[in-house]
């Protein structure tokens, strides 16, 4: 029975120690029973070939051992859809954080950090995000606890129906510009650091038109950033998010127009007579008008986004193709 012993040795290696003796004893009895039955069914003793044939009918040792383990998933079918959804949402969130962090690091170090370093940071961040989410779900699966929100679901909890898919390019552009503005507005990105050392200080300062707008702009752009991040994760526009888009857009338009009509946008500080930037003093009016036009352009683009969101909220006109 050498082959039987070899087989049981192999099966035993795939079993936990506390079950090994019990299971291999049972299996030995089963295999010997089969061989005994074979011997009874035909003349002649049991040969090595008979032993091997019976063992092959039992199956690979790993397969046999597997059947003596309790059925276990790393992430089972109950949790899998929730896990996959969470992985995608966290990946988007981590990507947004990485982009902002990458901009901050890049701009503050003068882009001394290379592209490959950035790529490495990106891959590292995404890997850890995936690993943490997966680890949490594996822990839930192994704990045996089952989230019961699926069993207690009620139809009234259904979120608003999606109105239209997002255009990812538009949303990412909005996120980028809002993110950069917030970083600049809060002095995380300081543009004067880009000036060569030979120029002593940037002579333009924010004018009185900006007084009182620090927190309102932070709130409006912060809300817009959070909204676009949420929409990017969802992948669709829904009625509440369209209303939020309209509200934040109107906030930006009102702020842009109010700042334009409030007063001077920039003030040029006094420059030494020999400064090469004297020309900025003479160009103050030009710069002022350019900035006001830029603000109105921003208001215009935002108005266009608000109009698109409003159109999506309107019921489709019967007879017209949507």
């Amino acid at each position: 029975m050498e082959w039987v012993s070899r087989y049981l040795d192999q099966v035993g290696q795939y079993l936990p120690e506390d079950k090994r003796v019990e299971v291999t004893t049972e299996l030995r009895e089963a295999i010997e029973g089969e061989l005994e039955g074979l011997a009874e069914s035909r003349p002649g003793p049991v040969t090595e070939a008979d032993e091997k044939a019976v063992l092959e009918r039992f199956g690979h040792p790993l397969k046999v051992a597997r059947d003596y383990h309790p059925l276990r998933y790393l992430i089972g079918p109950t949790l899998y859809p929730s896990w996959w959804q969470t992985v995608k949402q966290v990946a988007v969130l981590v990507l947004a954080i990485q982009v902002v962090a990458g901009l901050v690091v890049g701009l503050s170090t003068g882009w001394r950090i290379g592209a490959f370093d950035l790529l490495g940071l990106f891959i590292n961040g995404q890997f850890w995000a995936f690993a943490v989410v997966t680890g949490v779900y594996i822990a839930i699966e192994f704990s045996g606890e089952r989230p019961n929100h699926l069993d207690q679901w009620r139809a009234e909890r259904l979120p608003a129906a999606s109105v239209a898919p997002i255009r990812r390019g538009d949303v990412l552009t909005n996120l980028f510009s809002e993110g950069v503005f917030l970083l600049w507005w809060n002095d995380v990105l300081v543009l004067s650091r880009w000036l060569p050392d030979s120029i002593p200080a940037f002579p333009l300062q924010a004018g009185p038109a900006w007084d009182g707008w620090f927190w309102p702009l932070n709130i409006v752009f912060g809300l817009a950033f959070a909204l676009h991040l949420w929409v990017l994760m969802r992948g669709v526009w829904q009625r509440p998010t369209l209303w939020a888009e309209i509200a934040t857009g109107l906030g930006v338009i009102v702020a842009a127009i109010a700042i334009c009509i409030a007063g001077d946008l920039v003030v040029v500080r006094e420059l030494p007579a020999d400064s090469a930037l004297q020309v900025l003093g003479r160009a103050e009016l030009f710069i002022e008008r350019t900035l006001k036009i830029a603000l109105l352009v921003v208001a215009g683009f935002t108005a266009w986004d608000v109009w698109k969101a409003w159109r999506l909220l309107l019921p489709p006109t019967p007879g017209l193709r949507t």
């Binding site: 049972e26 009918r57 039992f58 199956g59 046999v64 059947d67």
Partner: peptide, 11 residues
């Protein structure tokens, strides 16, 4: 019933 099916089932 195959051996590989029957014995784990009985257990």
């Amino acid at each position: 019933v195959e051996e590989g099916t029957l014995y784990p089932l009985v257990r």
